[in-house]
Computed example of a mutant assay.
Amino acid sequence: MKSKGVLFLSNGHGEDAINCQILKALKASGADVDVSAMPVVGDGAAYSRSTLPIIGSTSQMSSGGVFDMNPLFLLKDVGTRLIALTWQQLQAVWMHSCCCDLVVATGDIVDRAIGLSTSRPYIIFLSDRSSYYQGRVDLGLILWQLLCSEKCLAVFTRDALVRLV
């Protein structure tokens, strides 16, 4: 029987660590899976430590991927090849995902949208909604469209408040 291909997407070191915990549980369950990862933000150090193969280019941006703290951070990142890196990452995900049975998108709207763009079934792990407590995030219609897609098989949350929304 052919092993299942699972692609993990994440957008920061915390999300990388969450995906590595999911991978650890998968291995412990004895599941026959062929896993890979694409950290959209950062260098994916947690994946490297867990020997999870990274499928595309990574880079540590000067903002650390946190644009909403200061809009100038986004401009600085654009100056340090953010657009080219994002395009390379999208191409890697699209090419690799055709061999996958499932995409796991952990983090914010960016990696969830990339998961949807693969046309593969996906699972969402919402981990960014802690910013909801700070009154900074309103994902509105975009989030609901991703959650309601027929390709979205399940949604998991880190924060209890999300379960009430």
Rank of each mutant, 00 (worst) to 15 (best):
S3I: 02
L9C: 10
S10L: 07
G12P: 03
E15M: 06
Q21C: 08
Q21F: 04
K24M: 07
A25K: 09
L26K: 10
K27Y: 10
A28N: 13
S29I: 05
D32H: 13
V33D: 07
D34N: 11
S36A: 15
P39T: 03
P39N: 12
V40D: 04
V41C: 09
D43K: 09
L52Y: 02
L52R: 05
P53V: 07
I54A: 03
I55N: 01
G56P: 07
S62N: 15
S63F: 14
G64V: 14
G64R: 15
V66I: 15
V66Q: 14
F67N: 08
D68R: 13
M69N: 12
P71M: 11
L74C: 04
D77Y: 11
V78S: 05
T80K: 07
R81I: 01
R81K: 12
L82R: 03
L85E: 12
T86P: 00
Q89D: 10
Q89G: 03
V93Q: 01
W94E: 02
M95F: 07
H96R: 11
C98H: 10
C100D: 01
C100I: 10
C100K: 13
D101A: 11
L102S: 08
L102Y: 02
D108G: 14
V110Q: 07
L116G: 00
S117P: 00
T118S: 06
S119E: 13
R120M: 00
R120T: 01
Y122D: 06
I123G: 00
I124L: 15
F125A: 07
S127L: 07
S127H: 14
D128Q: 07
Q134P: 04
R136W: 13
L139R: 06
G140W: 02
I142W: 03
L143C: 03
S149V: 09
E150N: 13
K151A: 05
K151W: 00
V155F: 00
V155H: 02
F156A: 14
L161E: 12
L164H: 08
